[in-house]
Computed example of a mutant assay.
Amino acid sequence: MNRRVGIRDVAQHAGVSIATVSNVLNRPDRVSDELRERVSESADELGYVPMPAARALRAGNSGLIGLTVINVANPFYGSLIAGAESAAATAGMRVFAGNIDDDAQQERDHLGLFDQLQVEGALISPFADTRAAVRGLRGHGIPVVLVDAEDEDGQLSSVSFDNRAAAAMAARHVIELGRRRVLFAGSRREVSQVRAREAGARDAVEAAGLTLVAERLPTTDPISGLAFGARLIAMEPDDRPDAVLCSNDHLAAGVVRALTSAGVRVPEDIAVVGYDDTPLAQVAAVPLTTVRQPAFEMGHSAAQMLIARIRDPHLARETVVFAPELVVRASTTG
């Protein structure tokens, strides 16, 4: 059986780069008449036949929605993706999801790939500053909707969660239980969602006449929670916080495991609060009090919002903000 001729073969035959062949096929206005003719002649001579997906790309209807998430290891983002996929499937479209893995360069690479793939629209759950990449996508006619974040510049439609109010709710909960040394543990400051959670916790703690201690961690998975829990254990008991607010359930579960393994009682000695209400919160060594985020519904709503803008680019900016709910379990009430 003969091997299918690809664009690499066409590029080699025409004496041009693969990028040039891609431009001839997908963005012919970017190349000269001479290059278009040379590439076309090589493609005809070799018998190059574009795949159906490539034909769809050139027609401007790839059927693809690009989606970036901060870290797919967190079950919250898995549910978010599932929600987006559900809405996309109803519209006859598919979601191409990119995992940022807490890395700003990887985020830029994924957004650049969305442009190359000519996705019909992009859903972005931002990790770092994506404004330049977003301008590039929109400049090529690709609509963008933010999910799990609001646009601080007031330009983009978004589906988000009231992180500030949610964290304030969690902080008030532990303060009402008599806790006075409250610590917030979250990821690096690049993440706007975590900045909002820290600000909300600070609002409630300072309103009670107390001082919030904030810890920034490189990552917020269960292993990071174990390491951070070990740091708390190494402190003198009177210097330890008596309540720890974590920026997600993964981190909180690791903290609880470290504390209880060392004989530090949760919640009697240290109350611990998670965030997201993932399944892990229910099955942790001590079931976690946590903030519930409707991840599936957020992903579904954001995809519907984006699809509407793919079909009608002139729709006005829209914002949807989901309200928080505190789910109280044993990690704060025993």
Rank of each mutant, 00 (worst) to 15 (best):
L64Y: 05
P218C: 07
C246I: 12
V291R: 01
Q116Y: 02
V147F: 14
G83S: 07
H173V: 05
D29F: 05
L137S: 01
T319S: 10
R38G: 09
L57W: 02
S187I: 15
A56K: 14
D102T: 13
A243P: 04
P313K: 11
L113D: 02
F96H: 04
Q118C: 00
P294T: 06
A89C: 07
A133N: 10
M298F: 06
M298D: 06
E85W: 13
T260V: 15
R138K: 10
V24I: 14
E198L: 14
R36N: 14
A11L: 12
P287L: 09
I175A: 07
T289C: 01
H140Y: 01
A87L: 11
D277G: 03
D269G: 02
F296H: 15
P28Q: 13
A97D: 03
V69Q: 01
A262L: 08
A167Y: 09
E45R: 15
H140L: 11
Q12M: 12
E41M: 13
F114T: 00
D129V: 10
Q105T: 14
E198W: 06
V283P: 00
L137C: 08
R329S: 09
A208H: 07
A281V: 04
I142P: 11
V134G: 03
A284C: 12
T68D: 08
R179G: 09
R317D: 04
E45T: 14
D203E: 15
T290V: 12
P218M: 08
T333K: 12
F127T: 01
V174E: 08
A167K: 06
S42W: 01
E236W: 04
F127K: 04
V328P: 03
A214F: 00
E85D: 13
A165K: 13
F322V: 06
R180Y: 03
R58F: 06
A295D: 01
A204C: 09
S187D: 11
A271W: 04
D153Q: 15
A227S: 13
A295W: 01
A185D: 10
V21W: 01
S187H: 11
G60V: 02
A204H: 08
D153M: 10
R179S: 10
H300Y: 15
R197T: 05
A227G: 03
D29V: 04
D221W: 08
F296A: 06
I307D: 00
G299R: 03
S22W: 05
S42P: 12
E318R: 15
S331L: 07
R202L: 05
M51Q: 15
L251Y: 03
E107C: 09
V328T: 12
T289M: 02
